[in-house]
């Protein structure tokens, strides 16, 4: 379980987060939405303990983040970066093994049982065939799954993902979101940011909408993401509508134009 209580953070005299409070239990998938520069990344960095809050607190399982040692914290919460541009062509398995850092002592090296564990994590995501491929030679979507496998091998139950689909094509975005949703069903708490409100509507249990460092809407996507909220976030009119498909009813968003557009 992860929660923040009246979390505030400022860079110098510029406040970035103002009184952010939220709680996420086990097995929840939360989508963080908001325009660029509203403090989503800062929020994530506070959750991960990279930044020290100006006031308020971040708690994981009831214990303040800054009271954990780095090793302990790595067993609680993992970070999956936006994209990974490897400089060296490590194999996928080598990359996943790096996630074991916190379980190994300083001079220890991963052994066969660790490799087995890493392969198991790759298997969970359906990419065990890529284990011995170079991380430079796989697609962006596969690389994103590799980073998720690296977080899984870390044994953390809370996963923080910074725009996991931002550099992926349409099909790969879907595949990665599907995987994330499956992980939620296995009991992981996942908090991801996205620029696509439909990701929140389609997959998330809950949406946190950020504007100017405050949460302006929090709740199940269907309730939280009204046309008004989206208008407030992105300053454009958005039509939010239900569409029936082969697989049931889904909510879609259609951007209509700027606030000053005449023919809305």
């Amino acid at each position: 379980m992860i929660e923040t209580k009246k979390l505030c953070f400022s860079y110098g005299n510029t406040p970035v987060l103002k009184d952010v409070s939220f709680t996420a239990g086990e097995g929840t998938l939360i989508s963080v939405l908001g325009p660029n520069g509203v403090g989503k990344t800062t929020f994530f960095r506070c959750l991960l303990g990279f930044l020290k809050p100006s006031s308020g607190s971040v708690l994981i399982n009831g214990k303040q983040v800054n009271l954990y040692s780095k090793r302990e914290l790595a067993h609680e919460i993992a970070y999956i970066p936006q994209s990974y541009n490897p400089v060296f062509n490590h194999t996928v398995l080598d990359c996943v093994l790096m996630g074991l850092t916190s379980s190994l002592s300083t001079f220890e090296q991963p052994g066969p049982e660790h490799e087995k564990k890493a392969l198991h994590c790759l298997q969970m995501l359906g990419i065990e065939k890529l284990a011995h491929r170079g991380s430079m030679k796989i697609s962006g979507g596969e690389r994103q799954l590799m980073l998720i496998a690296r977080a899984l091998v870390q044994d953390a139950k809370v996963l923080i993902m910074d725009e996991p689909t931002s550099s992926l094509d349409y099909g790969n975005s879907f595949m990665v979101m599907k995987c994330i949703s499956d992980l939620k069903d296995r009991g992981y708490t996942i908090i991801f940011s996205s620029h696509n409100p439909e990701h929140g509507l389609r997959w998330a249990d809950r949406v946190l909408a950020f504007k100017d460092g405050c949460i302006i809407a929090d709740g199940p996507a269907q309730n939280a993401l009204s046309g008004n909220v989206l208008k407030e976030l992105y300053a454009i009119d958005v039509c939010v509508n239900n569409v029936s498909t082969r697989d049931g009813e889904y909510t879609v968003c259609i951007p209509l134009g700027g606030t000053n557009a005449q023919n809305v």
Partner: peptide, 16 residues
């Protein structure tokens, strides 16, 4: 190997 990934990633994996 861990020095070849970004600072933030290494840190989230539990190493300074």
């Amino acid at each position: 190997n861990l020095l070849t990934v970004s600072e933030a990633e290494a840190r989230s994996m539990g190493i300074e």
